[in-house]
Structure formats: C-alpha cells, structure tokens
Design a protein around this nucleic acid. Structure first.
Lengths: 349, 349
DNA sequence: AAGAAAAGTTTGATCGATCAAATAAATTCA
DNA sequence: TGAATTTATTTGATCGATCAAACTTTTCTT
C-alpha cells in the first residue's frame, strides 16, 4: 500500500534480481524464457508499471516530443493542424512516445520555450508547424543541436536539402494538379484558380499545380489563363468577393479551384450556377457543405515526422548525418470529390 | 561540455552546498539575501536549469496534467475544445504545469490510458472533456483516488454536488436566455429554436434558456411556442432541413436560435429573408460568415479547471474534502453579436 | 571431459534533485 | 557575557530505474 510497486518488489516476488526485471522490460531477448515468464507473471500480479521519471533520469531520454499549439489565427484551415496533432499523438503513443504541448506568442518566445523544455530534459525533440521563409526557429535549433522535424518544407533562402533540417511536407503542386485534372476529365475546360498573393511558399506551389495542368492540356491561351486567375488574401468573404471578380473578368467558367477551404466556401456562396468548386485542406466545413477538397494526408505526415524524429534521436550519434537515409518526405495529397449535396442552393434563391 | 550543469556545479561555482541551491529555487525565503544573490548569479552564469525528471522522481510529483485529444467527430463545433486546449496549455504553462496529450478510442480505452499515465507517474491529474450521463471514466477515477476535473457537469443520475467530482461548465441556459433576450430587445417576438433531441444534457439546458425567456415575455402562446421549435441531430445540412421544416410549420419567424454553429450555418443557408440567426460556440466559421453566436468563455473555463485541479493535488491531503471551498464553477457565456456582413446573399440569388 | 566461449544473472554505482536531520552561524534573552 | 533560541547552511540518504562490470551457469570445442 505504500505507493506503487517498484522493480525491487517485482524482483523479490519473482525471485530474481532488479536487473533481470529491467531486462525483461527492455531487452526481453537476453532473458531465458522461463525466467521471463516468471517475471512477467510477477509484473502482472503486482500491477507493476515502471516509474517514468526514474527511467528518464537514468536513461537521459524523456521519450517526449514537444509541439507548439498554434493560436488558431486562421479559423477554418486551422483544423488541419488539429488533425495532424491528433494523428501525431496517436502514432506517438503507439511507439511509447509522449506529446507535450506548449504555447508561445512569437517565434522568439517559442525559442525561449525550446530552451526551457530542452534544458529541463522535458523533451527529446520538437515538431514545428507553420514554417516560413527565414524562420529563426529552425536556425536556432540547428545551432543548438536539438532534434526537430518540421511539418512544412524550408522556404525562401533556406536550403531544402540541408541535411540538418528534417522535414515532411504535402505536395501542394500535386494536389492542385490532380484536382485540375479531375475537373478536366469531367469535361471542364476553362478552370479558374483563386489563390493567395505571391510570394507564399505553399500558395505559389499550389498555383503552379493548376497552371501546369492547364498548360499541359493546352486548351486555353496564356492570355485567357491570366483572366482565369484571381488573387486575394485568405478568408470566406474574400472568397466570395474573388468569385464576383472572377465573374467580371472571365464570365462563366467551367470550374473553380481554391487555395483553401475558406476561399472555396466563400466562392461557393456566390455561385448560383453551381459551377464545381474545389477547396484545399478537406476541413470539416468542406465535408459539411459538400465541397470537393484536397486532403492533406495528416496520418502519413505524422508517420513521416515520427520516423524522421526517432531516427534522429534514436540514432544516438547526434550530428552524424547518415547521408544514405532521406532527410525528408514529400507526401502526395488525396483529392476528395463531393457533390453539392449539402447546400440546396435553390432554397436560398 | 559534459552535458548540462547540475545543482552540484552551481553549488561549486557559488561556493555553497547543493541544498542551498535547491533552496534558492524552491524556498528562496529561507536563504539569506546575499547568499541568494550569489547563487542566482551562478545559476545565470552557468545557464542552469533543473532536470525535470530528477525533480519529479524525488518530489513524486510530475507537474503534468493529462488530457485526451478528442477524435474530432463533430467537425465544426470541435473547435471549442481546441480553444479550450489552447487556453489550458497557456495558463498551465504560466503556473509551471505541463500538458500531456493522449488519445483513446473509447471510454474504456481511455481508462486504460488513465491507468498507464497515472501508474507511470506521468501525470498528477486529468482534465476530462465531453462528459456524458453515466460516464464510467469519472467513476473509475474517483474509485482510484486520482485527481481530475471535468469540463462539463455531471449529467443524468450522477450527482452534480458530489464533492469528489470537481467540474467546470458553461451555463448554456444563461447563454440562450441572453441570446433570446437580445433578439427580443431588437424587436423580435416570434423567435424559433432549432435544437437537439432530448435527452441531451447540454441540449436540454440550452433549450430551456430559450423557453424560459420566451415564457417570461409571455407574448407567444404555448401552442405557438411548440410550433417554433424544431428538433434535429447536429450538422450543417440538418440545420438547413430544419429551417425548411420550421418554415412549413411556423411560417416566417422573427429570429432563430440554434443549439450549435453547425445548425446555425445550415439555417443561414436556407434563409433568404435574412432573419437573424444565432448559433452556439462562436466558432471560426461563425465569425467567417457573420453569424451571431454564444461564446463559451474558454479562458475562464481553463482558469477554473486549473484552480480546482491544483487545489486538489496541491493540497496534498488527498481525500480530505475541505468542504468550505466550492467544488465547481459555472461560467456565464458571452453573446457575440454580428451582422450578416460576410455572406452577401443577394449575390447568390 | 577439460577448457574456452557464450549466455544468463547479479551486484554496486549512478542519473540529478530534494528530504530529513545535523551542524554552524547569527540573534535574542537573562 | 554566556546560555538559549532562532536562522542559515551543510551532509548523508533517498526517489526508481538502468548502466557497467562482475559473477555464475550453460553450451560449444577439440
């Protein structure tokens, strides 16, 4: 009753030594089968669980990864990060890793948190989301030799092939390329794109997917293609406005692709002809209102992140870049096609 | 270079003993001012940070709270829990508490996780969300003497005043009462309610807020009030359908209140006359499309949860219910009023 | 079957911090 | 001033697990 049982208690009960109990848990292979069974029985009997902190102190490994919970600036699209977080937690659990949250108000503040969590041996590494060009966080982590993986490739001047910067990203080009193709195969010819102003790493990437697919078909002149594109900041009402602008400069189009579900939702509202609209992120809203959308495969992203991260701090020899292993993963997103079922627009008319 | 500095290193540098360094960090009051300054200087100089695991091992306290990351079944409304999680993490951080995530596929699975995290001394307590009538989780936690606080009051047969069950909840009655009042003061008389089928703890509570406010005014007969109510499951398309049904059974109404933003969004779509619609949860979607909504004050909820939780495991004497302290908090939500600005419905016509 | 090698198990030390009790220094009191 | 207190600081033990090395048993050679 004096608290939880310890290795010593188990050892006593099984008639072996502490270390053998430890071995049963950590390297069962080196323990003789019958001894192992005896120990395992004792563990079960006593309901023994290793004390996480004690283990971490001795092994100098926390088996915990830190991730910053974003302030959710971007309402609708923010849910991608949620789904990612969920997938990450689930898969981390499965390999005995814990996920520790923290918040920060700025990149600088986040660096302070990195230091705090790392110095206190709270975490073994970090997962970063929403990277941007010239991100000071990655530089700091590299300089301080702390393991990390980013969800999002290095943008701008940062080297995408820097072996010290591990990353996983979703191939936005491919996502929009496929979405464009899908509309083309359904008979659409004049397909418009509502996107974000350049430069935007992810945004430019997605736009290029649409652009390339359109050029490959070659059914639309360059001049017309220019008219089929509208640029705006993200948001639902911006999407609606963009859709109206599109109407003015290009008339009725055969289909519309958007850089985000927010834009797509907005576009859908100003769309009495029910021109097919495809969004990006496959958020719950898209599912709810029946928008086609490009789904970032967060499960695969999470798996990739964990693989790279554990490879990093599992390989103990920190700083030894085994250059044969790939240092990043580019995930191909999936297009989810939906009917306009959920919004009976004729009711609104 | 041999890793991070320890208390011993600091002690050596400051010319004092380990324990004094420890005292400077944990009970600065008992250290003489000049000694303290010397130690503090050494700490800064060496960049010392206490090793979290070592401390936890010795103190038998993890300073960590566990929370399950919900599977996000309910797309749109799920974001309330996100905002709560964010607020919780932020405020926990401020008091030196960490937030550890886990996932579970069922209440039973969640109990397994409770056991794992508690036995491993990974966490000091739990925060539960989405409680329901006859929740096995709370019973189990109480039986095992594990600290926890729920976001959501005990429903059904469970005792709301059970001193062992600490909870924080948002007063849905008050939220809908205020929302109804607001529409009434703006001149509305026949205000409809689209809600969930009974029994639903939260749902019934919200409905009653509308119902009571309507009765207080007494401008609508009981018979008519019945026609002003539509019941449906949650979801955007259900909201649209409910709105149509409402139209049939009650004609044009002066305003509509909904049990969730999902329903409200749906209702808004089948609403060519732009009758004021008010949702619940104040999700990003509501903000985006310009829906009025009842905002659950997640910051206050988070603060309450932490207060109760730290009071619980801070008070060491576990199981001694200091009955003078309140064992729960009921937070009053805020109504956020918005214009229909974001959806220019005439465009869609 | 004796000696070498391999496999299995145990013992003592250690991770870094805090607790508990002992000692030293400063303060109060008679 | 010297004893009695109070305050400040130090020393040794400990939390629970794993590491490293020593030791014992089994298996393999020749």
């Amino acid at each position: 009753m004096g608290g939880f049982p310890t290795v010593t208690d188990v050892a006593l009960a099984a008639g072996v030594s502490r270390q053998t109990v430890s071995n049963v848990m950590n390297s069962p292979g080196i323990v003789r089968a019958d001894t192992r069974q005896r120990v395992e029985a004792a563990i079960k009997e006593l309901g023994y669980r290793p004390h996480a902190s004690a283990r971490r102190l001795r092994t100098r490994r926390s088996s915990t990864i830190g991730i910053r919970l974003d302030p959710m600036i971007d309402g609708i699209s923010g849910s991608v990060l949620d789904r990612f977080l969920h997938a990450l937690t689930e898969q981390a659990d499965a390999q005995g890793l814990r996920v520790l949250l923290f918040t920060a108000t700025s990149p600088e503040d986040e660096i302070t948190q990195f230091r705090r969590l790392n110095d206190g041996a709270d975490v073994d590494g970090f997962v970063l989301t929403s990277t941007f060009a010239g991100d000071p966080r990655t530089r700091w982590l590299i300089e301080n030799g702390i393991s990390f993986v980013t969800f999002g490739r290095p943008w701008g001047a940062d080297d995408m092939n820097d072996p010290q910067h591990l990353w996983v990203d979703v191939d936005g080009w491919s996502g929009l390329h496929e979405a464009t193709r899908a509309q083309q195969e359904a008979g659409a010819r004049r397909i418009a794109y509502i996107g974000w102003p350049s430069p935007s790493g992810t945004g430019d990437e997605r736009r290029r997917g649409w652009y390339d697919a359109m050029m490959e078909r070659g059914e639309v002149s360059g001049e017309e293609l220019a008219r089929l594109e509208v640029v705006t900041t993200d948001g639902v009402s911006q999407g609606t406005a963009a859709m109206q602008r599109l109407r003015q400069q290009a008339g009725l189009v055969d289909g519309v692709l958007c850089a985000s579900d927010s834009l797509a939702l907005g576009a859908m509202i100003a769309n009495p002809e029910r021109v097919p609209v495809t969004g990006y992120d496959n958020t719950p809203v898209a599912a709810a209102v029946g928008l086609s959308s490009v789904d970032q495969a967060v499960d695969e992203v999470a798996a990739g992140v964990l693989e790279l991260l554990t490879g990093e701090f599992g390989g103990k020899v920190h700083g030894a870049p085994e250059s044969d292993e790939p240092r990043h993963r580019l995930i191909t997103p999936r297009l989810v096609v939906r009917e306009f079922a959920a919004i009976p627009m004729d009711v609104a008319r």
